[in-house]
Amino acid sequence: MLQFKDDSTFSVQNSFKGFLFNTVEQIHFQSAGNPFYSFILFDEKTSVARLRMTLLIRNSEAYSPLRSPFGSLEFDDNTNIQDINYFLKELENWLVSENLQKVFIVSYPYCYNTRHSELLTHCLLKNGYSISEYDMNFHLQISSNDFDKDLDPAARRRYAKFKDTFQFSIEESPDIEAIFSLIKENREIKGYPVSITSDVLKKLYNSFRENFKVFLLKDGETLIGSAFGVRVSERVLYYYLATDSYSYKKYSPSTILIGHIYNYCRQAGISIFDLGIATSKSVPNFGLIKFKQNMGGKVSLKLSFEKNLLC
């Protein structure tokens, strides 16, 4: 028998391997002092949680997540539509009892688990949620093929010409300030805001070193490209805060960096290299879409949902 309950202490073990962003450590990090509740469907026979979603509460609204790329409901392969619908109905009963006004859910890209995403989307829509954002997410499927096999012809030529020109490294003791300076410089040139401070970036990296890899590309002592690789799960690496030097644009350092990370994924047994979204609140960034397509990126949906609980 399945029971709906609050497990905010994360004392009940999951029957599935969850994503990094929904772990208790990540929830504490992103909560910024806001209260959170982790709800499960608990299987009494096996003493494990078959379904879990954590909500953070702020200003009479519930969020999953509050500051991470996604949160949402995770579950094991034995979960069916009836289980998910029951969970969502019980969850709404709790939300209403707490006088919360609205709930927001950002789900993981479809490529992470297509079947789970399809089930969850169906159930959320059936339970009165609406799709608030529909972003395009791009990923590379890691295979035995060389990285450049699926590159756009022009990108393939540049990659072949310059891939051995610069020094690639996986840095164990990175200079976060130098990396942040390159990120800031790149964002300012392109007119994009910097969504994180150097202090928060340092704290994030130091708190989750086991899940973060720092990839660097240098011309001698000059840093010309960097990216954080976040191990979201055993099979997924997320491309985070990637940047390059505008003065080296003709060499396409981002393409070279992605090629090296692709090879790292292949060696590490990672099957999905998540390049992230190329839209912002559903609005397409056509330049970014073209770049990720030129890298051989495959597109999948990343959906956000919301429900007004006062209706």
Score class of each variant (00 low, 15 high):
145 N>M: 13
213 K>C: 06
140 L>Q: 05
161 K>D: 03
175 D>L: 02
154 A>G: 08
147 F>M: 08
204 L>Q: 15
183 I>H: 00
205 Y>G: 10
133 E>P: 00
171 E>Y: 02
175 D>F: 01
133 E>K: 13
174 P>E: 11
188 E>P: 03
188 E>M: 03
150 D>N: 15
155 A>K: 10
137 N>G: 09
173 S>F: 06
149 K>C: 05
186 N>R: 10
179 I>M: 11
141 Q>I: 03
148 D>C: 07
198 S>T: 06
200 V>F: 08
187 R>T: 06
186 N>H: 11
205 Y>R: 07
151 L>A: 11
161 K>Q: 14
165 T>A: 15
210 E>G: 13
189 I>W: 04
158 R>Y: 12
123 C>F: 00
170 I>N: 00
143 S>I: 10
195 S>K: 08
192 Y>S: 14
128 G>S: 09
139 H>Q: 12
159 Y>C: 02
147 F>S: 03
147 F>W: 01
129 Y>A: 04
209 R>G: 14
168 F>C: 04
204 L>S: 13
184 K>I: 00
132 S>N: 11
170 I>E: 07
173 S>Q: 15
149 K>L: 13
197 T>W: 01
202 K>V: 05
210 E>Y: 08
182 L>H: 01
194 V>T: 14
141 Q>A: 15
185 E>A: 06
152 D>K: 13
215 F>D: 00
185 E>F: 03
172 E>A: 09
163 K>L: 03
199 D>G: 04
211 N>V: 12
145 N>P: 02
190 K>N: 10
131 I>E: 08
139 H>A: 13
167 Q>T: 15
134 Y>I: 05
176 I>L: 14
164 D>L: 04
188 E>L: 07
135 D>T: 06
162 F>V: 01
169 S>F: 02
151 L>H: 02
180 F>H: 08
156 R>I: 09
149 K>E: 13
181 S>I: 01
196 I>C: 01
156 R>H: 02
212 F>I: 15
199 D>M: 06
